[in-house]
């Protein structure tokens, strides 16, 4: 199947080595505007490494990452964020000592130019921005059904709600591309189904493109428009969910030679 829409993220031939281990080997991937693209693969296939290269936490040894025709190169994570790139974390990395509301507000703060002096004197501008950030954060908490937990410390929320908060924190900066690192990790079947609904709602409401890494085939098959399969650091294959489900190499990579 050909995908003719404009590409938003273009990852070309990236290779990452850790000492003697090649974590990613000449891997390429493309995400078009408006799509939800899945990246799957067995444990240790290099999915998280791939992700870190896109968000800027890691620099690939070889290869190029282009976002919206900006070559990302050596750009640090906080600059990528300003271009419209956001991510969630497999291990959440919420600000556990901040309340749910503050976790979202700080993501708004991150993009404001206000400095420490304006804050120390609580200038009218600081108050105005503060009020706007709080309004935005509360509106998003409402959308995520987290309103009643606004003042709870993020570290005290149950895992399912932490996932939602992590998603909200990435969304509130109105990114164009959202990178989701194993959003279903630690969720049960019912919670995963809810997450799938939420992701589809998020795409429609926020008009955001997504690149999703997960083990959970039910989730990936349900929400993704296009799927890439990574195995031992190499792109094994790609295609729409229906094709990937039938693909023998994929089945082999996941279930082992013996089964097939």
């Amino acid at each position: 199947m050909t995908r003719t829409k404009a590409s938003l993220l273009e990852v070309e031939h990236i290779t990452v080595r850790f000492g003697g281990v090649t974590a990613l080997d000449d891997a390429s991937l493309r995400v078009n505007s408006g799509e939800i693209v899945g990246l799957i693969g067995p444990n240790g296939a290099g999915k998280t490494t791939f992700f870190n290269c896109v968000s800027g936490v890691l620099k690939p040894d070889v290869g190029r990452v282009t976002f919206d025709s900006h070559e990302l190169g050596e750009l640090p994570p906080h600059r990528r964020s300003r271009l419209g790139l956001a991510r969630t974390f497999q291990n959440l990395q919420l600000f556990s000592g901040l309340t749910a509301l503050e976790n979202l507000m700080v993501a708004v703060d991150a993009h404001s130019q206000r400095g420490m002096l304006a804050d120390a004197f609580r200038t009218p501008l600081a108050r105005l921005e503060e009020r706007k950030a709080e309004e935005r954060a509360r509106a998003l908490l409402h959308f995520l059904h987290l309103s009643d937990r606004a003042d709870t410390l993020a570290g005290d929320l149950p895992v399912g709600l932490q996932r939602r908060l992590d998603l909200g924190r990435a969304l509130i900066g109105r990114p164009r591309l959202l990178l989701l690192d194993e959003p279903a990790a630690g969720l049960d079947t019912r919670e995963t189904a809810e997450l799938a609904d939420l992701l589809l709602r998020v795409r429609d409401r926020f008009n955001v493109t997504m690149l999703l890494v997960d083990h959970d085939m039910a989730l990936v098959m349900r929400v993704c428009d296009h799927i890439y399969v990574l195995d031992f650091g190499k792109m094994l294959t790609q295609g729409p969910p229906a094709e990937i489900r039938q693909n023998e190499t994929v089945i082999r990579a996941y279930l082992g030679e013996a089964v097939v």
Binding site: H78, Q93, L94, F95, G97, A107
Partner: peptide
């Protein structure tokens, strides 16, 4: 903002940097 940003850095540096 300052307090939130600094406490965010304290709790999870990498997440803070990917937020901008």
């Amino acid at each position: 903002k300052t307090g939130r940003v600094l406490r965010a850095i304290r709790d999870a540096e990498i997440a803070a940097s990917t937020l901008g």
